[in-house]
Each structure stands twice: as structure tokens, then as C-alpha cells.
Design a protein around this nucleic acid. Structure first.
Lengths: 108, 108
DNA sequence: CTGTTTGGTAAGTCAAGACTAACAGTAAGC
DNA sequence: GCTTACTGTTAGTCTTGACTTACCAAACAG
């Protein structure tokens, strides 16, 4: 719920989305991720921290490198959050289509 | 793609999420949405504009009122964007689980 | 036609956060 | 041991955007 806030705001930043999309191609160390982006490596480190706190990525250390990869947990939580609206939206849309240009009473 | 940016950043703001969740209960005029929130009505108007541009909500005029409701289109697009990562993430996760604490070669 | 209700718009203020530069830490190679 | 890669952290700057206060437009009531 309030966890959805972390999930969404984590993906809200363009650079962070770029990092995430880079990880879509497969696990990557930090330096390799940063090399394809117009920002410095520390910036990428900070973004990875945010993504990790949100549960969207995870990491494992191999030698002096840290390999990051997409964590399905975060994506699953985000999907669940979206589905929460899906049903309601269909009802609202159906209602709007049926009502068309007609009147609607909203008092409750 | 770049449309996903509008979708996600639209839902990134807490107030905008509150507006969206309010609309989950059903179609509502602007004033009614604002009355349940700690911000002024103009602020809600601005947020609704952003949500509308993203395709997350739609509106229809009835008299002097404007009824807003959730638009499934935006949600569908967002879901599609997420699913784009879902598959890749499963592969990456599986790979990480199998590799465990072992070695991984990343050179390509 | 006048007044009321309902919403969208413009200008300006202010806080959140993305970025860089500098520093600190850990593992491998020699 | 010392040096070299690779990464995380901190301090400080600067831009983005959320908010309020005015103001303006449209639709109904009388």
C-alpha cells in the first residue's frame, strides 16, 4: 500500500528507469550500467540503492564487483497494486459508456 | 515507451495517487474529490489534468460539473509496460538462484 | 439579465531530490 | 606488504514541480 509509493516513485525518475531497463537485458555490474548512461557512476549507485529499497532489484557480490539484477518481488507487488484499480476502472468505464451524455446523480 | 514516463510520473505524486484512489470508488466531480483532500481545488484540477494527459482518467461534462472517472486505457498501457519486465526478471532471478553464491561470467 | 455555482488557468513561492566531486572501504594481483 | 580495480557514501549545488492565491469562463436558477 504505502509500499506502492516506494515502488512507483522509484520508477518515476528517467535515469532510474534507464538503469532498470538496462537490467532487463540481464544482470550487470555497476560500472557496466553506468558506462551506457550520461550520468556518473556514483549517481547510478544512488539510483540502485533506491531501486533495491523498493524491492525492484537485488544484488550479489562476486569478487570486487556487485552484480545487480531485477527482482520479481517488486514487480509483483506493483502489478497487484495496479490490479486493484483495474476492476473498478472497468465498472466506471462501463457506467460512463452507458450513461453517455445523460445525467448522473452523485449525492450520497 | 516514452508514454510510460507520463504514466508512471503521473502516479508518482502522493496527492495524485490520492485523487486516483478516490476515483476508484466511482466517478466524482472535481469539488467532491477536493473536499476529501488536504489541498485546494485548483491543485486537484492541475492533478486531474496530468492524469488525463497520461490517459489514466477521462471526464464528461454534466451541467456545470465535470465528472472524472478512471480510464482503463492508461492502466492497460501501464500493465503492458510492467509485463515487459516480468519475463526478463524471472529469467534473471532463476539465473541468480541457480548460480547461488557461485561464479558468473558476464563477458560478451 | 443578474447572481450563484462549478472548474480551469496564471503567476509566484518553496521544498524535494537528482547530480557531481571528493573521500572511504574492500577484494584481487603482483 | 603495496598497488590497482570496483563500489558505496557524504556534502553541497541546482533544477523540477507541487502548492496557494488570485482571476476568468461557462452553465443553471431566479
Amino acid at each position: 500500500m504505502t509500499n506502492a509509493a516506494r515502488l512507483i516513485s522509484a520508477l518515476a525518475d528517467p535515469t532510474r528507469r534507464a538503469v532498470f531497463e538496462r537490467l532487463k537485458e540481464g544482470p550487470r555490474p555497476v560500472g557496466e550500467i553506468a558506462s551506457g548512461l550520461p550520468v556518473t557512476r556514483p549517481a547510478v549507485s544512488q539510483h540502485l540503492k533506491v531501486l533495491k529499497d523498493a524491492g525492484l532489484v537485488a544484488d550479489r557480490s562476486v569478487g570486487t564487483r556487485r552484480i545487480y539484477y531485477i527482482d520479481p518481488k517488486g514487480l509483483g507487488a506493483m502489478r497487484a497494486w495496479l490490479d486493484q484499480f483495474w476492476e473498478a476502472s472497468l465498472d466506471a468505464f462501463k457506467l460512463a459508456a452507458e450513461a453517455g451524455a445523460k445525467k448522473t446523480k452523485e449525492e450520497e
